[in-house]
């Protein structure tokens, strides 16, 4: 008490007015809490799985003769599976951080996950694009080879234009946006972690 200098902080602290605990409110929150967390995961998973199935169906339906087409299909699906795998693993990690460990351990784990997220959003997107582009290029070759020269140029030209737009415009923009957000967060978590060293 001596360093309190006559200010009774404990007394002041406990005199804060508090609303009664509300069990009903808690239960309703519990319900929405469970729902919201899963929605985003489901959307991305369903979207990519449906696309993969669609590609396989087209592959089977047109019965491709060239090995390049089959490799193309495989690579395209591989790219999506690879991305989904890392994304889901990260989310699972994120959800499973134990909240019952000490603040110090918790912060370190949070930091680790944020760094992994940073990797997913920058490097991983790059790999995803490269594999996807090669996959699509190979996949199209069989069908494009039956077209006239103009058709071939047009098909590849437009596809590459679209991929180029994504690669050179959308991807850097997305990465920059995410990086700003996540870098600030990582810096902040590191700072807080430092407080406990």
């Amino acid at each position: 008490m001596d360093y309190n200098n006559h200010i009774d902080f404990k007394d002041l602290w406990k005199r804060q007015s508090i609303k009664e605990p509300d069990m009903k409110d808690l239960m309703s929150r519990l319900h929405t809490f469970k729902k919201a967390g899963l929605r985003n995961v489901w959307i991305l998973n369903v979207l990519l799985v449906v696309t993969s199935v669609f590609i396989v169906c087209i592959g089977v339906y047109y019965n491709p003769q060239f090995i390049s087409t089959k490799i193309g299909i495989l690579l395209t699906i591989l790219a999506m599976v690879m991305y989904l795998f890392v994304y889901n693993k990260l989310l699972r990690n994120y959800k499973n951080i134990s909240t019952t460990q000490t603040n110090q351990e918790y912060l370190q784990e949070l930091l680790l996950i944020k760094k992994k997220q940073q990797f997913l959003q920058t490097k991983m997107i790059g790999y995803y694009f490269v594999v996807l582009t090669i996959g699509i290029g190979l996949y199209m070759y069989e069908y494009a080879s039956r077209m006239s020269l103009l058709g071939l140029c047009l098909t590849y030209g437009l596809t590459l234009l679209w991929i180029g737009f994504n690669w050179f415009y959308l991807r850097p923009k997305q990465i920059k946006k995410q990086e700003n957000k996540i870098d600030t967060l990582i810096a902040k978590f590191e700072e807080v972690n430092q407080q406990l060293q």
Partner: peptide
Amino acid sequence: RIASNNCLR
């Protein structure tokens, strides 16, 4: 622990 970790989060 849960409460303080939740605050930090």
